[in-house]
Computed example of a mutant assay.
Amino acid sequence: MNLAYTIVTVLAALWVGFSALSVFIHAKWVVEPLAEYGVARRWWPWLGAAKAAGSLGLLAGLFVPVIGVLATIGLVLYFTGAVVTVARARSYAHLPFPLLYLAPVVGAFLLGV
C-alpha cells in the first residue's frame, strides 16, 4: 500500500467525518447555509449519516479496497449534489465549499488506483 494513498485517504476521511459531525451538532456555519439553500431540516440527519458512512467507508477501503471505491463513488455523488444544490440556490460564493470536501476524496481515489 502506498504511503501517500494512506495519508490522503485518512485525511480525507477525517475531513468528511468533520463535515458529518458538523451537521450532527448543528454547527451554525453548516446549518444556516443548508436552510438558506432550501434543504429541509428533516434531511439533515440523513445528510450527516451519508457523510459519516462515506468517511468510515474510506477508512475501511484501506483494508477492503472495494469498500473504498464504493465510498468514493457515494461521496463524489454526494458532493456533486451539494455543488448542484448550492448553484441552484444561486449562492455562488459558497460553491468552493463542497469542492473542498470533494477534492481530497478524489485525490485519495486517484492515488489508490
Rank of each mutant, 00 (worst) to 15 (best):
Met1Asp: 03
Met1Cys: 03
Leu3Asn: 11
Tyr5Asn: 15
Tyr5Ser: 14
Ile7His: 01
Ile7Tyr: 03
Ile7Phe: 05
Ile7Asn: 07
Ala12Gln: 05
Ala12Trp: 02
Ala12Glu: 06
Ala12His: 02
Leu14Lys: 01
Val16Ser: 03
Val16Gln: 09
Gly17Cys: 08
Gly17Lys: 10
Phe18Trp: 14
Ala20Met: 02
Ala20Ser: 07
Ser22Lys: 06
Val23Glu: 10
Phe24Cys: 09
Ile25Thr: 14
His26Met: 14
Val31Ile: 15
Ala35Gly: 02
Tyr37His: 06
Gly38Gln: 02
Gly38His: 04
Ala40Val: 11
Ala40Phe: 00
Arg41Trp: 14
Arg41His: 13
Trp44Leu: 10
Trp46Arg: 14
Leu47Gly: 11
Ala50Thr: 15
Ala50Asn: 04
Ala50Lys: 12
Lys51Ile: 11
Lys51Asn: 09
Lys51Cys: 03
Ala52Ile: 08
Ser55Phe: 01
Ser55Leu: 07
Ser55Pro: 02
Leu56Cys: 08
Leu58His: 01
Leu59Asn: 03
Leu62Asn: 02
Leu62Pro: 00
Phe63Asp: 02
Val66Lys: 00
Ala71Val: 06
Thr72Glu: 05
Thr72Asp: 04
Leu75Trp: 09
Leu75Val: 14
Leu75Pro: 05
Val76Arg: 05
Phe79Cys: 11
Phe79Tyr: 15
Thr80Arg: 12
Thr80Ile: 15
Ala82Val: 15
Ala82Trp: 09
Val83Gln: 04
Val86Ala: 01
Ala87Tyr: 08
Ala87Pro: 05
Arg88Val: 07
Arg88Pro: 02
Ala89Trp: 05
Ser91Trp: 09
Ala93Gln: 14
Ala93Lys: 15
His94Ile: 08
Pro96Gly: 12
Phe97Met: 15
Leu100Asn: 01
Leu100Met: 12
Tyr101Thr: 12
Tyr101Asn: 11
Leu102Thr: 09
Ala103Phe: 06
Pro104Trp: 11
Val105Leu: 06
Val105Asn: 04
Val106Leu: 02
Phe109His: 02
Phe109Gln: 04
Leu110Gly: 03
Leu111Cys: 03
Val113Phe: 00
